[in-house]
Nucleic acid binder design. Sequence first.
RNA 1: GCCCCCGUAGUCCAACCGGCAGAGACAGCGGAUUCAAAAUCCGUCCAGUGUGGGUUCGAAUCCCACCGGGGGCACCA
Length: 977
Amino acid sequence: MTAQPDVATADADRRGTPPFRYTAALASDIEARWQDRWEAEQTFSTPNPEGPLSDGETLDPAEKYYLMDMFPYPSGAGLHVGHPLGFIGTDVLGRFMRMTGRTVLHTMGFDAFGLPAEQYAVQTGTHPRATTEANIERYRAQIRRLGLAHDKRRSVSTTDIEFYRWTQWIFLQIHGSWFDTEIGRARPIAELEAEFAAGTRSLPDGRAWSELTRPEQDRTLDGYRLAYLDDAPVNWCPALGTVLSNEEVTADGRSERGNFPVFRRQLRQWMMRITAYADRLADDLDGVDWPDSVKSMQRNWIGRSQGASVRFRESVSGQDIEVFTTRPDTLFGATYLVLAPEHPLVDAIVPSAWPSPGGEAALDGRWTGGADSPTAAIAGYRSVVASRSDLERQEARDKTGVFTGAWAVNPVNGEELPVFVADYVLMGYGTGAIMAVPGQDQRDWDFASVFGLPIRRTVQPPEDFDGEAYVGAGAAINSANSEISLNGLGVDEAKAAIIGWLAGRGDGEAVVQYKLRDWLFSRQRYWGEPFPVAYAADGESDGGPSIPRALPESDLPVLLPDVDEYAPKTFAPDDRDSAPESPLARATEWTSFSEDLASDPERAWARYVRETNTMPQWAGSCWYHLRYLDPTNTERFVDPDVERFWLGPRPEVFGPDDPGGVDLYVGGVEHAVLHLLYARFWQKVLFDLGYVSASEPFRRLFNQGYIQAWAYTDSRGVYVPAEEVVEEPGGGFTWNGEPVSREYGKMGKSLRNVVTPDEMCATYGADTFRLYEMSTGPMEASRPWSTRDVVGSQRFLQRVWRLMVDENNGSLRVADAGEPSQETLRLLHRTIDGVRADFPAMHYNTAAAKLIELANHLTKTYPEGGLHRSVAEPLVLMLSPLCPHLAEELWSMLGHPQSLAYAPFPVADEALLVEESVEYPIQVNGKVRSRITVPASASEDEVRAAALAEEKVVELLEGAEPRKVIVVPGRLVNIVK
RNA sequence: GCCCCCGUAGUCCAACCGGCAGAGACAGCGGAUUCAAAAUCCGUCCAGUGUGGGUUCGAAUCCCACCGGGGGCACCA
């Protein structure tokens, strides 16, 4: 095969370049042909060990490699040059792995449910499916143009009916399970029901199972399920018309998408009991090969803290106030209690009148807020708190609060402590109540200062300590009663001692708290997976809240109905009292149906109404790594043997605690908490239920960097097209002669700095674009895009092409006879040795540099052509992961009819890596003063002798004996005078 | 405020376990080619590693402090 002259000649006529130069036109021609051929020959179809995707060959599990990118959301804007960075990186690795004998599974699907298509539907009436599928087609074309070696048979979209059918099925499994805290894993809910029925497990209220009515039984079981309905405080976003998960709300209380206000509201919503897995999600991070930053973000989000629960008895009402503290060792320093304003116990303990002045000192005006009664004070304070947004509450760190009029007894010393409400205590964490120890907690110190409360140190600060609250380590002081003394103990010892004492009296116990909340799993949207759930149309027989009934598997998939109006009802962004209304609720034909639900024999062929919420966008991405493995399976979401082959633990390679999972998962760090935490949770449920063998979805995670870009604004602050901006010789930038200012950030339409891979492929070809992206830095580094630098990669590929192909007639310039020089051979093998290490480490920038170095050497060595085949072929093979089309073309021209995709990657000849002689720099007192060249075989003593005999060294030593001579073999000699 | 990551030529980046600061690319400069230009090719200049200490025979690399940039968390008891 030779290059196609027609394209090249046309190019030559126009540009005056040789007809067979490696130009964008020639590259595009080569690339299109190889992309067609790979597709026609199914070059990158990866066999399964069995099933429909098997090719009948036996696969060696030791050689499998499952490589995955975080799949994209197919937006209407298409890809810009930043998006494919990770995709190309994984492709290079996959291609290298294939050439070293690995069976590589690599494909790409689409995370295709989501808001933009729905919002577009709201504006235009276009069905979200139409928009989504058009966008996916666009993405597929863009990705194909890059020459990525994907198994296209395995590509799935979360919106495919055959995909979301199994998303619904997994939901049913989660709904049909409960978490057995005794063994720390999920079990089928039927086993719990059987234990209740048999009496082997007692009900929380002590009644017998048979005494319960059917609705009572169902509600009891629902209280255990991993997917459950709850009237819980949720994040309600009126502007979006939907509720959001905690993870989707920013720290300043707004929606991550759209930045709208979010309000806390009590609403009945689907929840996932991810908190049951808090410990395993935290502990199992030790067993995965992930970046420390992501692990720490997840640990932080789970927020496990060890502490104690302590009960303080309220003096008048006799109510126990339970507080959570991580510092039970400071209990003797507690001088007041604080309840969150929303704490349910507040109303129970508030007396009708302020405590009589006879018994107490006259109440401080700061305590009462000037109110006549505690009830009025609390009502007043609550309304102030409620009127403040989360953001205001967060910004104003001044401590506010009010005395409840109640007093509670400290169990360690019988002291009566005043009980306050204050908004610095959050209802959502711990018990919503704290014991305040101003001496050891700065927040309590601040509050105590405002309200004139006593401060007592119970940990001895260092002598030079001049701060307020002391939170460091130290010996306990002022901490003793008639039964126990903590004085002199360190913090940890004191904690253990006091917890033991409290537990013995029944006043407290050790407790673990988590910041992690259950996952809010329903959204009031159209474009999402419908829940496979329905409710009795005529309500429950006991008149209680509706009981959700899982639909049988035979009802799956529950298809999204067509609707006239895609939008949920939205409201003014600050309309906190509005209530969600899902678009599916209006599809009355769809919502109402009759069925014989086996789960409820009393209601055969009753009328039901469907759940009208849909699942959040995260659902599909929780398990797509499983569907890639077995995308055509109609019986199961994944075949167990196929799953075990690709994802199963491999203790022989990764150690006895290997959880299994995808061998390498590459994506941006923005998914550190949301997607990765949810996917781990689903994986663990499926693992517990025995459907998968891997207890973690992603054994190794790698965060690629981002490609960012310069953007320019004119004097009015308006963005100007970045590609038209010119850099002035004296510094500064102008657009149409006007000075503009430069800023650095994301690539985006609004910043007018988007560069697309399509443009780059048209101007330079896909191989040049790939090489450029890979050579500008290591995979993990973020870096700026610079179109003008791309030409460097193209020049290199032109040199490689010119080394092997005559630019004037397209003929091969490679010599079959003769031998390359020793120098060339040594460089070749050094290059092989280097890139063999660089590719698997994803150091593509240094691999490219080594290949460029080799090509530059060869260009000088063979100015008239005649490059030896024994050098040309390894060079082509080494280049192929980065620039597969060009490499395939050259490989073919070199006489190989087969694709090089599975050709063996060159192996370095060790003998050629050893130099015959070594040049040693000689340092005197750490400064290089001279050099010697000795045979590589020289011993350390011989090197030392040669160094000391060197002319300049003798001169510098002036006859003195050196104090020390350090010889670093192969490196240098350092002489200390 | 706390935690994590990163600071090397004009720019993007190399430098393995502490051992000659430079592999590669862009830009710049000089040259070849050209009527000229573009394209291409050849050659070449450029920093002592953010700052200050310390350890060491020797520090970009290890330790401490500070400065700058990026990210995460944040009234979580």
